[in-house]
Amino acid sequence: MISSMRPIFDKTRNLSQEDIDVVLTSTNANEKYLASIVSELAGISPRIAHSVESLCNSGTNCIVSAFAYISSGLADVALVTGAERTDSPGLVLSWDKSRGKYKHPIFWSSLFASSHMRKFGTTLEDLAYVSAKNHRNGLENPYSFFDRSYSVGEVMRSKTLTDNVRLLDCSMPCNGAASILLASEDAIRQFTDSPVWIAGIGQKSISAGFTKNADLSSMESTVLASRDAYSMARKSPKDIDVAEVHDAFSICEIMALEDLQLAERGKGSSLVRELHDTNCKKVNPRGGLIGTGHPLGATGVAQTIEGFYQLQGTAGGRQVESAKTALIHNMSAAATSSTVLILQA
């Protein structure tokens, strides 16, 4: 966590530890009093310090909490830091008795895939295109867990886990940390002349149990969260220049594109193929979860940092030209909850 904070202090003018009002930590690790411990280790004495845990969505939830502290006037400057290790207890939700012995996430993703395939004719090859595209994008990301790409054929031939989930359709749990700084409109000017604004936020929990998803070919919480985020930002899907979407599994990206209205219902896989074939980096330029790795508590923060780079025009080889508006989509536990952020340059 500390190592991911260092570049913020190194690269932000006028910023010192005394400026930080809020430190929020995002992780699924069972670490008590973590935000205060991290604050002490980083030389910060914040007014507000605590952890936010919400499985895969923890980092994005953490950013929303920091936004709320600032917009309420309780704080001016918030540091959000997320981290996870491969042995995180956040990979499986043991509470969900309705999953029976099929508690591992590959099983819900497999049932999502079955449903999407049945309804829209989505194929195994369509799924492979997601992974091939995101692994290729991830090559341009210096923080990616992987140092090579995979072709559609290689994804197709990777180890079969279920009938419609192969090893390379899955994001990889890994160690990782990410930190981001949020500040009020007044406070930000001392730190930068070109801030990125959080223009819209939508969050929705429909349940905690996977089987409460009424339609397994769509993620209801994502539909509802994106509706709120678009409305708050006064934006529509056609305004989105670049998007980081939660692709814990290949099928999730196809469903997310449809649920965020970036593709028509049933056309998510066509969009993915088009992005792949034209080497367009509009969706998951940093590689998504599949092409970057998925350190749960850090993921939502890292997704948002990518939106920041894209809108600042500093994303290097993965830059989407003239990006002005970015969408960040994250979710937890078989899409029983989702968060959508809309960022603006």
Partner: peptide, 23 residues
């Protein structure tokens, strides 16, 4: 809905029009 895991079929079954479980 259903899928297969290593040749074994698993699926969601709905009871009394509201209780859904995976088995």
């Amino acid at each position: 809905e259903y899928s297969y895991n290593k040749g074994e079929c698993f699926g969601i079954v709905e009871f009394e029009s509201q209780i859904r479980i995976v088995g």
